[in-house]
């Protein structure tokens, strides 16, 4: 147990801001984001990598922040939900979720938004089936997914139009 309390210097960029912190090597990335640098938009739903609520982007790729140690992000670029858009300037994906009612309690939403943002970069014009496949690693207990699927299809349309 002694070894775990030895702190390690971490330097990571989150949403464009560089953070330098001395942290325990066992600290999860999700805990680092939420409690160390207080970006609480990333949520933790299962702590075992199934629900996808904690998904963030690392160098543009979705990762489960509950399955990673913060120290693994040394020198990387992380984007969380806070980095996608703001209340006054929603990203096209966020705007589409608003218009299509793609969220209810909002707890799974940050992980879905980051996943979908990355997905639409690689597949800008997806079919419904591809959308369902793309979000199949994100659990939602409120929506039954239909309005989420609608929102992703709408976001694709919005991004193409812009």
């Amino acid at each position: 147990m002694e070894a775990t309390t030895q702190k390690i210097e971490l330097s990571v960029t989150v949403n464009g801001t560089r953070y330098e912190r001395a942290i325990e090597p066992r600290m999860l990335l999700s805990d680092f984001l939420r409690h160390e640098i207080e970006l609480t938009g990333t949520h933790v739903g299962c702590e075992h990598g199934v629900c996808g609520a904690c998904s963030v982007l690392m160098d543009g790729e979705p990762v489960r922040s509950c399955l990673m140690f913060a120290v693994q992000t040394q020198g990387r670029e992380i984007v969380t939900v806070e980095g996608l858009g703001t209340v006054d300037a929603l990203s096209p994906v966020q705007q589409a979720f608003h218009e299509a009612h793609g969220l209810q309690c909002g707890f799974c939403t940050p992980g879905i938004l980051t996943t979908v943002t990355a997905f639409l970069e690689t597949n800008p014009n997806p079919s419904e089936e591809e959308v369902r496949e793309a979000i199949s690693g994100n659990l939602c207990r409120c929506t039954g997914y239909q309005h989420i699927v609608d929102a992703v299809l709408l976001a694709a349309k919005k991004k193409q139009a812009s």
Binding site: L39, T40, V81, E82, L84, V87, Q94, F97, P110
Partner: peptide, 21 residues
């Protein structure tokens, strides 16, 4: 009508219990 609460929820600004530090 689209929801009033969405913008905060969509941007990670809505407070849940575990966000209270």
């Amino acid at each position: 009508v689209v929801r009033n609460e969405d913008p905060r929820l969509l941007t990670g600004q809505a407070q849940y219990v575990d966000d209270v530090n």
